[in-house]
Write a protein that binds this DNA or RNA. Structure first.
Length: 486
RNA sequence: GUCCCCUUCGUCUAGCCCGGCCCAGGACACCGCCCUUUCACGGCGGCGACACCGGUUCAAAUCCGGUAGGGGACGCCA
């Protein structure tokens, strides 16, 4: 009876990678961008699938037509792709399955496991408030449960007839066994008065129909779980395993939000973060493998275990993220980094393709000095845009005569040298110092200012090698002129 | 209010299930020293925690009970 296209394809597409039979899904609601919390949940699901050779499904929970937007869907997909969290099936849209949900609602009604409720939203709201004021649980009082006559054409919702005694428990893969007394659970609405199904009902149907084996999601869903289990049972579906991952907090221990800085995954990309750094950071937030801090994708997949995820919420620490990013910049492939860096340089008015040193060579001189691609771009700028002004305070530390002598000597020596590598240039400069009786800083600093404009830059030898001696000599001449006119 | 969950350095965490190796280990941040032609990188060292109270035990971060604090849920949102 379940003949919908996505279901058939979900069975057919990836037969070869279903060896373990594990099927997990990431099911965001498209009401905003992909934030770090969601990204971590997606990552844990992805790791679960990859580790066990299972299937990772992406499902968009857009049953709330009011709040869902296609822009959000795009933003989420973009975030997932950037992080390298590839999915095997989907994206599926719940909004495409409304007829399916309707069938199941009808099935429950036919079984007398669901009933029509004619209470209006306003009435419900008023009763909830009253109950709260009187210190009672604000749950539905069940007054339409036993209605015998159907009051004509008044609008109604459909409620699930939940058991009123006993208890429902599940063995959470992260938190352990959790038990709820059924009397805490009320008859939840499974179909709105406009005929659309509600979230708690859709997830159950979709997870069952997609044969999800492990539901890994945020722990704000813990309270929904017993209700959903009751639905599984009422419909005769096998109940999946659940794992509720604790949430991510801001530095003030409040739920992570915009005022804590960036929460969107894409914002981190724009801040010059590498996806592997964010992924590494996220996987270690709430999970660990002994003392290991750095994880390649393969290592992550090999060592990840959902049961080892911590039970308590964790605070997002931007400093540590930055440290990881610095690590991945330091150890990254210069060619790849160059490609990622280019747009940041363009934003700053530099165009490596129009001449100047090879960007990858520039990157090499900056890898140990940049924690983000933005910092790297700032540091790389001088290679492509010769300094138009010099750090005068730094320059003022040397006498005019000394500066003129340094620049003249260096220009002269560089014009005739056969040195090509950073080490050779450094040796040449060292010899020069010995010859002239200068200390290295007396030579290095003025030269650095001449080449980069400031005092914070890669090693002199590296700069000269990267810039080339011709351009170096040009810049030294320009500095010489500048020094002689002040 | 009711229910559910959580609690090791400022932060992420190891250890906890299977008590002794833990007067608690690693990492980020911070501080100091070293390296050094700037800035960084790196190296070395320092600071710094078992929420609290009881119980069990020869022995408890680890087991049991309670207290406090924090969070989440209680929607015709997801």
């Amino acid at each position: 009876m379940i003949g919908y296209k996505f279901i058939i394809s979900s069975i057919g597409i990836k037969k070869e990678c279903c060896m373990s039979g594990i099927r997990v899904r990431f099911a965001p609601s498209p009401t905003g961008y992909l934030h770090v919390g969601g990204a971590r949940t997606a990552l844990f699901n992805w790791l679960m699938a990859r580790k066990h050779g299972g299937v990772f499904i992406l499902r968009i929970e857009d049953t709330d037509v009011e709040r869902s937007t296609s822009e959000s869907v795009d933003a989420i997909l973009q975030g997932m792709e950037w992080l390298g969290l590839d999915w095997d099936e989907g994206p599926f849209y719940q909004s495409a399955n409304f007829p399916l949900y309707k069938d199941y609602v009808q099935k429950l009604v036919d079984l007398d496991k669901a009933y029509r409720c004619y209470c209006t939203a306003d009435e419900l709201e008023a009763r909830r408030e009253l109950a709260m004021r009187e210190g009672r649980k604000p749950k539905y009082d069940g007054r339409c449960r036993t209605l015998t006559e159907q009051p004509g054409d008044r609008p109604f919702v459909v409620r699930f007839r939940a058991p009123q005694d006993g208890s429902t428990s599940f063995d959470d893969q992260i938190k352990g066994t959790i038990t709820f007394p059924n009397e805490e659970l009320d008859d939840l609405i499974i179909q709105r008065s406009d005929g659309t199904p509600t979230y708690n009902f859709c997830v159950v149907i979709d997870d069952a129909v997609m044969r999800i084996t492990h539901v890994i999601r945020g722990d704000d869903h813990v309270n929904n779980t017993p209700r959903q289990i009751l639905l599984y049972q009422a419909l005769g579906f096998p109940v999946p395993l659940f794992a509720h991952v604790p949430m991510i907090l801001g530095a003030d221990k409040a739920r992570l939000s915009k005022r804590h800085g960036a929460t969107s995954v894409i914002a981190y990309r724009d801040m010059g973060l590498l996806p592997e750094a964010l992924v590494n950071y996220l996987v270690r937030l709430g999970w660990s493998h002994g003392d290991q801090e750095i994880f390649s994708r393969e290592e992550m997949i090999a060592s990840f275990d959902i049961a080892q995820v911590g039970r308590s919420a964790s605070v997002f620490n931007p400093d540590k993220l930055l440290w990881l990013n610095a690590h991945y910049i330091k150890t990254g492939d210069p060619q790849r980094l160059a490609g990622l860096l280019a747009p940041f340089l363009a934003e700053r008015g530099a165009d490596p393709s129009a001449g100047g040193p090879q960007l990858a060579a520039v990157v090499k001189t900056l890898q140990e000095r940049a924690r983000t691609l933005i910092e790297m771009a700032e540091g790389a700028l001088f290679y492509y845009l010769a300094p138009e002004a010099y750090d005068e305070t730094a320059m003022a530390k040397f006498e005019k005569g000394h500066l003129l002598a340094v620049y003249a000597t260096v220009a002269e020596r560089l014009a005739t040298t056969s040195a090509r590598t950073a080490a050779e240039f450094d040796a040449l400069l060292k010899d020069l110092c010995a010859e002239k009786g200068w200390k290295m800083p007396q030579l290095g600093q003025p030269l650095r200012i001449a080449l980069s404009g400031g005092t914070q830059a890669p090693g002199i030898g590296e700069i000269i090698e990267t810039l080339g001696s011709a351009e170096t000599v040009r810049r030294v001449h320009r500095a010489l002129e500048h020094a002689s006119t002040c």
